[in-house]
Design a protein around this nucleic acid. Structure first.
Lengths: 123, 123
DNA sequence: CTGTATCCATGGTGATACTG
DNA sequence: CAGTATCACCATGGATACAG
């Protein structure tokens, strides 16, 4: 199951952006700079420690985020976007904009179907 | 689980682009225009009919691709990108470019590690 | 505080067979 | 030709407990 010859380096970018928490983590770090583990966790209600750790490790592995451990007690670990990671920002923003527009598109479509399907909606 | 307040319309775009075959399908249709089902299938070795149908339906649902059925025997169905679907092209291209660059990045990193650890070349 | 280690539920994907 | 219908697998994600 080889990938298409030249076509799909798209998927390399996709792999990094995708997953239930990765975009959220990236957005948080992009917008709020350096954060420590507990701060990130607090700012993402619903995420488990396991997922946060796992996704941060994956992003670190790709040099998208940087992890700095302070050898203290209690432990302190800070995460931030790398310069390289910032190269993803235009893509994230384009997707955000597209997504925002897309919900409008869907609503319009929905309205169109309502109009076509029924005369009610009189209030 | 609720999404972040404003942050993540990114995921709406992601949902459309993601999946094992969606980017490939989109790229094929973007680059090669209108194609019929069997042509698409042939041009994507490894995809099953089920997956191709399913993904095309999802893309159609989002108005990204258009499906035209010719009432003939044998059946003929053509797929193409909608004008709206083309609005995804910049994102796809940005991702393709980023991905292409990313493999270079990884190779460089790999070389760097080799150099750093080059003292030990045992076995 | 910042992680690991398990176990388990779920869904997306694939193989295969069948149909209008 | 262009699908639909089933079944099975496995990776991803979630809950929980434990540890340095």
């Amino acid at each position: 199951m080889e990938k298409q010859p030249d076509l799909c380096r798209v998927e390399d970018a996709l792999d990094i952006l995708v997953g239930k928490w990765k975009p959220i983590i990236l957005l948080h770090l992009l917008q709020q700079g350096t954060k420590r583990f507990s701060e990130l966790k607090r700012s993402m209600p619903g995420i488990t420690q396991k997922m946060l750790t796992q996704k941060l490790r994956e992003l670190e592995e790709e040099d998208i985020v940087e992890r700095i451990v302070y050898p203290e007690v209690p432990p302190k670990v800070e995460y931030s976007i790398t310069a390289y990671g910032r190269s993803l920002e235009p893509i994230l923003e384009a997707m955000h904009e597209w997504g925002t527009n897309h919900i409008v598109h869907k609503i319009r479509k929905q309205e169109g179907m309502n109009k076509a399907g029924s005369q009610e909606e009189r209030k």
